[in-house]
């Protein structure tokens, strides 16, 4: 078994235990599912028209939801909550022969794949809305929404995630 496979199995098992301990679904915690569901709903709303006046606040709120979704997705793999204290897994594996390079890389891979999936969902939602609005209201197609999703995903999920992995592993 390669080091990479060992880390994958280890992570799979942590997720299984934490899913059972903290309640979750399909490898995701409930807070992560809710935060993302809410973020997707917000993305569906034609925000430019309705929330234009809120501007920065709306974007910040959306960013916060995405950040929380990412945090709750990665939390199980990075830390463990024990009686209200947060302990990095690194502490528990201090005296165990772990290949730390594979350990970190696997977490980066999970983060990247999670960010990619969220981005893809946003892009699909945006395209569907753009096409519908072009078909029924005759509006022009624009790529602003996709650029917005890319900026939000990198700023609220990818960058903080990289920081947390760097800090905890």
């Amino acid at each position: 078994m390669t080091e990479w496979q060992k880390i994958k199995l280890f992570d799979k098992r942590i997720v299984k235990y934490e899913e059972h301990r903290e309640s979750g679904f399909a490898g995701l915690s409930l807070p992560c599912i809710f935060a993302n569901a809410f973020a997707f709903v917000l993305m569906c709303v034609p925000f430019k028209e309705i929330f234009w006046e809120l501007g920065v606040f709306w974007t910040a709120f959306h960013g916060l939801l995405l950040f929380l979704g990412g945090y709750w997705r990665m939390k199980w793999l990075l830390v463990l909550s024990e009686n209200g204290k947060i302990v990095p897994w690194k502490e528990y594996l201090k005296y165990v022969p772990v290949d730390w390079k594979s350990y970190r890389c696997h977490r980066y891979q999970v983060l990247l794949s999670y960010t990619g999936k969220i981005f893809l969902c946003f892009v699909i939602i945006q395209m569907v809305f753009q096409i519908l609005s072009k078909a029924f209201m005759g509006t022009e197609l624009s790529f602003e929404g996709i650029a917005y999703a890319a900026a939000m995903c990198s700023g609220s999920i990818l960058l903080p995630g990289v920081f947390f992995i760097w800090k905890c592993c």
Binding site: F10, R13, I14, Y17, S81, Y92
Partner: peptide, 28 residues
């Protein structure tokens, strides 16, 4: 090749003995 038996050997307190062993087994 080393086994440490110590109070300082920190393990996930909320997990059961069986769960901890199942987690650690991958690395040996």
């Amino acid at each position: 090749q080393v086994a440490l038996v110590s109070d300082d050997h920190r393990m996930p307190a909320v997990y059961t003995v069986k769960e901890v062993c199942k987690l650690y087994q991958y690395f040996y």
